[in-house]
Design a protein around this nucleic acid. Structure first.
Lengths: 344, 344
DNA sequence: TTGTAAGCGTTATCAA
DNA sequence: TTGATAACGCTTACAA
């Protein structure tokens, strides 16, 4: 009866050793693909393991190796599309690795500032991926560097330290989009900013201003609206923009969620997109294909960035060589929401 | 110099005991909020811990307690909005608990069938939340039950076992939506099915048929289209529906993503929504508010379901009493995409 | 109220 | 090619 009672309990390495007539060290060797195990011995061990439904205990492994194989993804939650892309990129890189991903959705960068390291510590993380704008918080970066916690920043703007970095050239992309609108004859263009704390936002705004200036077009400051990267904030900004009698002929929003909001605001105001007003977004998130017309936007390879960031993080953790600053390609996607201005 | 070298290494309970002039057991007591520690002693311990930047080693804790405090969320990836709602619900419930959430996005239910238990084992999970349709895979459920792995199923349809369950009444909700369309005068109504493997789909279809029958309206089988719960599949279904000369006056899609696709298909076909055709969705995901017009839909409390499921799972793990089958309330949300039929 | 000693299930050392 | 045995950092009896 005593042996029978064991059934509920998870088999351990000792059980496998006993059943296979070997030692725990040999079983360990088999399960860690170490050399110098006779094929016959290996077979016996695996057989016993299968019979006992043995799985190595992660906690014990972690303890003795001094490693958790846990990495953390820290992000704010601007749009679900973006978040899922981020997660999927990281998870896909982790596939076939023994590492596991822990999620840390943060209310906002300020709330975790100074607390992030502690969170990582208590969770036993071995490394961290910081999605924007968390990678631009000086306190956080300082803490991590000081604690020698490996981390990689996605799309940061500030060069706060020597930690690896993955991103696109937001400024250049915004310039490209603005040039696109200018080439369609638009001169009176509104810009909807995202969260002022996201440095991507100021880069995009700068790109917009730069392109306008280069083309000799005036930027009407009353047409620079403040949003927060959410659909709702874009809707509100759009309503403000279209309430004015001096309407712009085009609106460039700093991300797709806001651009979708602008489109809805336009329709509320009885305006046709792109007939009366062209609307452009940024990110190429799912939402840009779901609105009607579909949004002209900048494809930002969120998935690839998360993938590359995770890849760099693993290299960092395992002390393999890596590229300190990876810059991925963006792409202008012209779709139905922008067209030649009617006033031409 | 030897003491100095220690700086890199993480402090252990022994270090804290030494520095505070106590024993490791006392330090352990302090960090586990056990009673019978003199306030003065507690202070000294905490002081030493702070000075050494001590954080308990999770692996060691897990090992000795025989617990990992890891729970897994398994889901397919129909729509990012749904996934994020799910995650947020689970994470919010876990907030302030020592449990951590591990993500397991699955390609499809069949791919993990038979492999899910092993995944859970090697990850050291203590419990599992199964999002639809994973909770309806007999093999998976059988494996988990047999292995005595605690799990909770979200929105399952099949009563495969006695594991706790959280969901809404999909059939009743679909009936309500159909009644809504009928009450607007629609009789020729198309239905876009979701993934045939999701049991929620058949329940919604049954609800649709039931309501139509009860109202004495005929269901034209050629208007029952097959989709896969994705935006693209809804778009394709919509194109097929509107290509026919005998157009319906309303389309009821089994989820919002597909309904959004139908709306785009309608616009492609030069049809006004809801002027020429009413479109209804299901789920109240973000996308339903992003299309224009906004979608009439069924609010499915995804967040609440994940929250409740996680809550039940913790109860299960900790052997606390729990409600075996939680049924949450849905809600019909009438928005701009449905209106009285013109033919009336 | 505090401390000693014995594990928890692995991997690493080193001898066989 | 294998196996005793000692860690790893913590919690849990059990004493004191």
């Amino acid at each position: 009866m005593e042996a029978g009672d064991k059934r509920q309990v998870r088999a351990t390495i000792t059980d496998v050793a006993a059943r296979s007539g070997t030692s725990i060290k040999t079983v360990s060797r088999v399960f860690n693909d170490e050399p110098f195990v006779r094929p016959e011995t290996r077979r016996r061990v695996l057989e016993a393991a299968a019979a006992l439904d043995y799985h190595p205990n992660m906690a014990a492994r972690s303890l003795v190796r001094g490693r958790s194989f846990l990495i953390g993804l820290f992000y704010e939650n601007p749009s679900p599309n973006y978040v899922v892309d981020l997660q999927t990129g990281a998870l896909d890189r982790l596939h076939d690795e023994r590492y596991r991903l822990l999620l840390f959705p943060c209310e906002n960068a300020r709330a975790v500032s100074g607390r992030l390291l502690q969170l990582a510590r208590t969770s036993g993380l071995e490394g961290i991926v910081l999605a924007p704008p968390l990678g631009d918080d000086p306190q956080t970066v300082r803490d991590l560097v000081e604690a020698r916690m490996p981390f990689v920043r996605i799309a940061p703007t500030t060069a706060l330290d020597a930690s690896p970095t993955v991103g696109i050239d937001d400024g250049a992309a915004a310039r490209e989009m603005t040039d696109h609108l200018l080439s369609l004859g638009h001169r009176r263009i509104a810009f909807v900013q995202g969260d002022p704390d996201h440095p991507s936002n100021s880069q995009r705004l700068d790109g917009f201003r730069g392109a306008m200036q280069a083309a000799g077009a005036t930027v009407d400051e009353r047409l620079i609206e403040q949003g927060r990267y959410t659909f709702e904030s874009g809707l509100a900004a759009g309503r403000r923009i279209f309430a004015d009698r001096q309407r712009p002929t085009a609106v460039f929003a700093a991300n797709d969620d806001m651009a979708a909001g602008v489109v809805v605001a336009a329709k509320e105001a009885g305006l046709d997109v792109p007939g009366h007003v062209s609307v452009a977004g940024f990110d190429d998130s799912l939402i840009s294909r779901v609105t009607w017309p579909q949004l002209t936007t900048i494809h930002q390879p969120t998935y690839d960035m998360a993938h590359a960031a995770t890849d760099a993080l693993l290299a960092l953790i395992e002390k393999r060589p890596l590229t300190p600053a990876i810059r991925l390609q963006h792409q202008l996607l012209v779709r139905g929401s922008t067209t030649r201005t009617a006033s031409l």
